[in-house]
């Protein structure tokens, strides 16, 4: 399979970037999108050119490191991570546009690599439970009903890849933030910090320069883990509840 790739190349964070065309031949349809880029990079290195920089780690769709906008869609045409997107979803002779996540809160570091540490600071503002260290507590001491456990797990699936921010026309992190708020606020372990968590995380999200939610639903469509759009409604409810209670604990 032969493809024409138009890839965003940017040497440094401050340098101006541009879409650059590459003709890539000998692509197998069984390659993942990242393997296809590896293939391109090998050719670039042999030709003495700078390889395309991109983030990747597990390549199993579970770590959230990879992510690029392919033909205008975060993680490309399939609902999965870029590493799990296979070249069989493209046709011979296609022109494919590859761009980094675009958001003020995610500055480009190089080529397709963006700085997503804003997410870490949002998590650091309440996306945790404070527990005493020591031996593991007795598992039956805190019963969690099955539907609650399922709800929490559904939202714990978020891998923090940033596709929601990349897909949102406002560069909003509402889906990401709501995944963690719903996950922890659903559980008894998260209850003591229920109010401070949502207030802290929404405050951090705003401070990082993410946009607001206009309910376009682009985030949930792009999410490789299927975090539902209605989780944003749950976070809004938690935020208003916590605001009315003045942010005090339960």
């Amino acid at each position: 399979m032969n493809l024409t790739l138009r890839i965003w190349r940017q040497r440094t964070a401050d340098a101006a970037g541009a879409m650059t065309s590459y003709e890539v031949s000998g692509i197998s349809e069984d390659m993942s999108f990242l393997e296809m880029l590896d293939h391109l990079n090998e050719e670039l290195i042999l030709a003495g050119d700078e390889p395309v920089a991109f983030d990747h780690d597990c390549r199993e769709g579970i770590c959230g490191a990879c992510g690029m906008v392919i033909n205008g869609q975060a993680h490309g045409p399939e609902r999965t991570t870029t590493c799990q997107l296979h070249m069989r979803h493209f046709a011979d002779g296609d022109t494919v546009d590859v761009e980094p996540w675009r958001a003020a809160a995610f500055p480009v570091v190089k080529d397709l690599v963006v700085d997503r540490s804003a997410f870490d600071r949002v998590i650091g503002s309440g996306g945790y439970v404070s527990v005493p260290t020591g031996s593991a507590p007795e598992a039956h001491a805190t019963p969690v009903p099955k539907p609650v456990a399922d709800l929490a797990f559904e939202h714990a699936e978020c891998i923090g890849c940033g596709a929601c921010v990349a897909a949102c026309p406002n560069g909003s992190a509402m889906l990401f933030t709501s995944a963690k708020v719903v996950h922890l606020n659903a559980l008894p372990q998260g209850a003591p910090e229920r109010e401070s968590r949502v207030l802290g995380m929404v405050g951090a999200m705003d401070a990082e320069g993410f946009g607001g939610c206009t309910n376009t639903g682009e985030c949930a469509t792009a999410c490789p883990k299927g975090i539902p759009l209605q989780s944003i409604a749950t976070m809004n409810r938690e935020f208003l509840r916590a605001s009315l209670r003045g942010g005090r604990g339960a």
Partner: peptide, 21 residues
């Protein structure tokens, strides 16, 4: 705020969301 949060547009533009939105 929303416009400032997404300063760079994608080169590959796609129609997004419904007309009403």
């Amino acid at each position: 705020r929303d416009l400032a949060a997404r300063p760079a547009k994608y080169a590959h533009a796609r129609r997004r969301a419904s007309y009403a939105t």
